[in-house]
Simulated scan of single mutants.
Amino acid sequence: MYSITSCQESSSGNNSSKAEKADSSKKTYLSQPLVNNIYTADPSAHVFNGRIYVYPSHDTATGIPEDDLGSHFDMRDFHVLSMDSVGGKVTDHGVALDIKNIPWAGRQLWAPDAAFANNTYYLFFPVKDKQDIFRIGVATSKTPEGPFVAAPNPIKGSYSIDPCVFKDDDGKFYMYFGGIWGGQLQRWNSNNQYDSTKGNRGAEELAILPRVAPLTSDLQNFAAPVKELKLTDEKGNLFKEKDNSKRFFEASWMHKYNGKYYFSYSTGDTHNICYATGDSPYGPFTYRGVILNPVEGWTSHHSIVEKDGKWYLFYHDVQLSGKTYLRNVKVTELHYNSDGTIQTINAVK
């Protein structure tokens, strides 16, 4: 379905999908990978200048052993993909930002997002600092594909992973972020204080909540302190950790549809992409259901974008490699019911 134009050859010779190939002959996939010259994951999709730009993680096989903290997700640069329309030719624009050009970075360049303001394109990214604590940085470019130049320091007061930057109808920007387990959110309390000894919550404890903060007009700093984002069941009750098919794990995304705010996220160890709705960018958000059932592979991470009157879900699986740390980005159309609920998608049969 998709063809690819490469503006720059992959920077790592071990990225070729030919190196590790999964046996997918007995599976039926809803969609095919956008590209197969490199491994990609965690796609953040945006429409800039009438074109779809996708900002994914760039998976590589670095030989780091797998563990529950995600040490094997050892990304070292970002590529930007683009296409005129879903189903059309996909361009890989090459390396947009390399970890070696982020002054404060230590390791693990995880899932990014992007935004446009002030005649500038912004790339937001989590990476561990020199003390091995995840922070969120920002880089800028005059073009949506980059290359991007990183600010000398992370965003003050930022922590954890998976930034999603949402522009509301009034022009204000908000950042949603956080991820438990390897994403370290469990080490940060509701007052934004860090405790390296804090572990994952017990089954009967309240689940850890995602975070939100407004951004300053230059998109370089938080305009107010980071707050927890309330995520509840239909009765207004916060989820417990044992409610792990519905509670937040990682992969925040925000979009707006018919005046409602839709907060979507991954449940992590139960592999659902779920969503909740609210009337304010700060919530509270009420759980509504599952957008995407578990994909092939351990992780699930997505974005939702409108183009030419249709809505699309970008996601990833491991069709090309069969390896949880070598993923590939895909896209499929998203459908709403008349009451604003979202129809659940099955990515594989």
Rank of each mutant, 00 (worst) to 15 (best):
P225F: 11
S266P: 01
I52S: 05
L219K: 09
T344G: 04
D42S: 10
S190N: 15
Y39R: 12
F173H: 15
L69S: 05
K100Y: 01
S10Y: 12
F177Q: 04
I273A: 13
I345A: 07
H302V: 07
M83N: 04
S85Y: 14
P210V: 11
V47P: 02
P214C: 11
N118F: 10
L185I: 07
A223H: 01
G309P: 01
W298L: 05
K256V: 03
E204R: 12
A105L: 01
Y287S: 03
G183E: 00
G179L: 03
R288A: 06
V35I: 15
L206H: 09
Y194I: 02
R211T: 10
K256F: 02
S141H: 10
L109C: 06
E250V: 12
I64D: 01
M175Y: 04
S266G: 13
K227V: 00
W181S: 14
S11H: 10
K323M: 11
E20L: 15
S190D: 13
G340L: 01
Y265W: 12
S160T: 12
F314E: 01
K323E: 04
L229H: 05
G157S: 06
N337S: 10
T324Q: 01
L320Q: 14
T197S: 15
F263Q: 04
P294D: 01
I304A: 04
T140C: 09
S264D: 05
Y2R: 05
R135L: 05
I180F: 04
V295Q: 09
F148T: 05
M175V: 14
P210N: 12
K167M: 12
D162P: 06
H255I: 11
G178F: 07
D317K: 09
Y194V: 00
I52D: 01
Y174T: 06
P210L: 07
L238V: 08
F177H: 13
D339S: 10
P144A: 11
Y159I: 00
N101F: 13
P65G: 07
A117W: 00
D129C: 11
R211V: 11
V331L: 08
L292T: 05
F285A: 09
K27F: 14
H93V: 11
I155K: 06
K246L: 10
I342D: 01
Y39V: 02
S3I: 07
S158R: 05
S71G: 11
G268W: 00
L334Y: 03
P103F: 05
H335Y: 13
Y174M: 02
L185C: 07
D162Y: 12
Y176T: 02
D77P: 00
T143V: 13
Y194D: 00
F78V: 06
S300R: 02
